[in-house]
Design a binder for these strands. Structure first.
Lengths: 171, 171
DNA sequence: TGGTCTTGGTTCAAGTTTGAAACAAACCTA
DNA sequence: TAGGTTTGTTTCAAACTTGAACCAAGACCA
């Protein structure tokens, strides 16, 4: 089977997608770095904890929620713990487990910085979209995420039989 | 003025967006790392060069095309140069300038790995979308990118007067 | 001209991410 | 219940990113 290259429409969509996602993530990272002294991911970790029952989650659950690897999470939590925004506790039921708990200070940082963050997201994302587009975006993204999540387990790339033939193009 | 929090629809869209973009970028990075031995960004750099006249671009233009900072680009190009996929040349008109040129070997790598890359993008993105959604995605992303690009200059975050008030939520 | 400002790139240190390997506890199963 | 496998998490080294500082070389202009 020969490669199905992207159609012109797909090319355009793909490039716009790559550009938009990079630019937006950069803008959000910069804003949060300035206002909260941490990148977006770290903020997300705190935000996820703030919504969890008792403001605490097991590492694996937190990694699942934030869609990152466990090792990346370990590093991030270690940093946030040094900053006093998170506290590590060990799990009673499962001695292997480690639990990340949001501290009051962490909650305070979140409360202080949430407005700026929301405003950034609004300015650069939602202010640019019609209500209809917001819906479309959700559907599109939900579809993509579903394809990538399997049922909780990421379909490790090498399980998919990639074709290998020539000719470039497609950033 | 008090913060305009995200509506439930916006929340859903935002979360789906964050999840989808992370998962997709991760999948693409993993695939390219395995097949081409480089992350997506590096592949994009090669791809951009391959389409430029004479397969060469000035650093700043390349940074602009790939939406990354100059320092990040410098590092990436240095690595790719070590791998023999890019060659640096100096600009005749402007002695400050530095030009990145795709080597034949770089072109070959691109040709060899493009099919796998396209297939990944297709599998996880376009196969999940209807033709209509592809169009919608392009429009949405174009809008976002426009808001973030000013006219070539990024609106440095601190020029926007952020509001600062309390209450969290919004990953 | 000789300053001074801007632009194009690189450098450096500190911080982050990656993937593989290491551990330890929990879970089988014969 | 010992031995083997799986699961939860951390560790480590190598690679990458960030932002500020730096260095030329062009541009501007009194």
């Amino acid at each position: 089977m020969t490669t199905r290259w992207l159609t012109p429409e797909e090319q355009r969509a793909w490039r716009a997608y790559v550009a938009a996602t990079h630019l937006l993530e950069d803008a959000i990272d910069r804003q949060l770095q300035q206002d909260a002294g941490m990148p977006h991911l770290y903020y997300s970790i705190l935000a996820n904890l703030s919504e969890a029952p008792e403001r605490r989650l097991r590492m694996t659950d937190l990694a699942e929620k934030t869609k990152i690897t466990r090792s990346r999470l370990t590093y991030a939590v270690t940093r946030l713990e040094k900053d006093g925004l998170i506290r590590r506790e060990n799990c009673r039921w499962d001695k292997r487990g480690s639990i990340a708990a949001l501290t009051d200070e962490g909650m305070a940082v979140l409360e202080r910085t949430a407005p700026g963050h929301v405003e950034t997201v609004r300015t650069f994302l939602f202010d640019q979209l019609t209500d209809e587009q917001v819906e479309q975006l959700e559907e599109i993204c939900t579809g993509i995420a579903r394809a990538l999540e399997g049922d909780g387990e990421r379909p490790s790339v090498d399980e998919v039989p990639w074709l290998r033939r020539s000719s470039p193009s497609c950033s």
